[in-house]
């Protein structure tokens, strides 16, 4: 009982530190999930309905990003982008890397959901004269959404645990290295 009250005492002392950490985790993951989902729907559409060159490019993007560890993506968005003049701070680099990672996963989920819809649905929509946009918004997307939601929740839950790879105050030496590398290149 004494130990538990000591623990509660420590929690109370550290409440603002914990809340700041919680706020940062929630904001990074929610932004990454939102941006990644929007980008992922576009990736899924390109993978399903794009022409051959577009499909090839998006397939390469998806496979490359999915096969890259998150830490490497975060490091790349923090350091490599600075060498081409895009200076992202730690928060922006974290959100960008996680959104890109999320988009490749959501893209595959959307592709799977769209391809699971029977071809007869698209054919019926064409037969009644719907355009592709109308077919997608009124026929395909409502059905695909139902199929992809459980897996999307799974990906979103995974994204919450990823901000631990984001740049932190423990990276000051890396920050100075980034400045040095940018100067050396320019």
């Amino acid at each position: 009982m004494n130990e538990f009250s000591a623990f509660l005492d420590q929690v109370w002392l550290a409440r603002f530190v914990i809340l700041r950490g919680l706020g940062l985790t929630v904001s990074i993951s929610l932004l990454a999930i939102a941006l990644g989902s929007v980008l992922g729907v576009l990736v899924g559409l390109a993978l399903t309905y794009g022409n051959r060159p577009l499909r090839f490019v998006v397939r390469a993007y998806t496979d490359f990003i999915r096969g890259t560890p998150v830490l490497v993506l975060v490091l790349a968005s923090f350091y490599i982008l600075s060498t081409i003049g895009i200076e992202l701070n730690a928060f922006q680099a974290g959100v960008f890397a996680l959104a890109v990672f999320c988009s490749s996963h959501v893209g595959e989920i959307v592709r799977g959901a769209l391809q699971a819809i029977p071809a007869g649905q698209t054919e019926a929509a064409k037969a009644i004269g719907l355009t592709f946009r109308q077919t997608f918004t009124s026929v395909l997307w409502p059905q695909a959404l139902r199929q992809m939601l459980p897996t999307w929740v799974n990906t979103a839950a995974e994204m919450v645990k990823r901000p631990r790879f984001c740049p932190s105050s423990a990276w000051p030496s890396f920050c100075s290295a980034r400045r040095r590398s940018s100067r050396a290149i320019s």
Partner: peptide, 25 residues
Amino acid sequence: MAELLLRTQEIISRNFMSLEFYFLA
């Protein structure tokens, strides 16, 4: 900039209540 797990590790390094704070995280 430090997210929840890093903040938790910072707190643990001060009070050594590792199990309790990891459980809270």
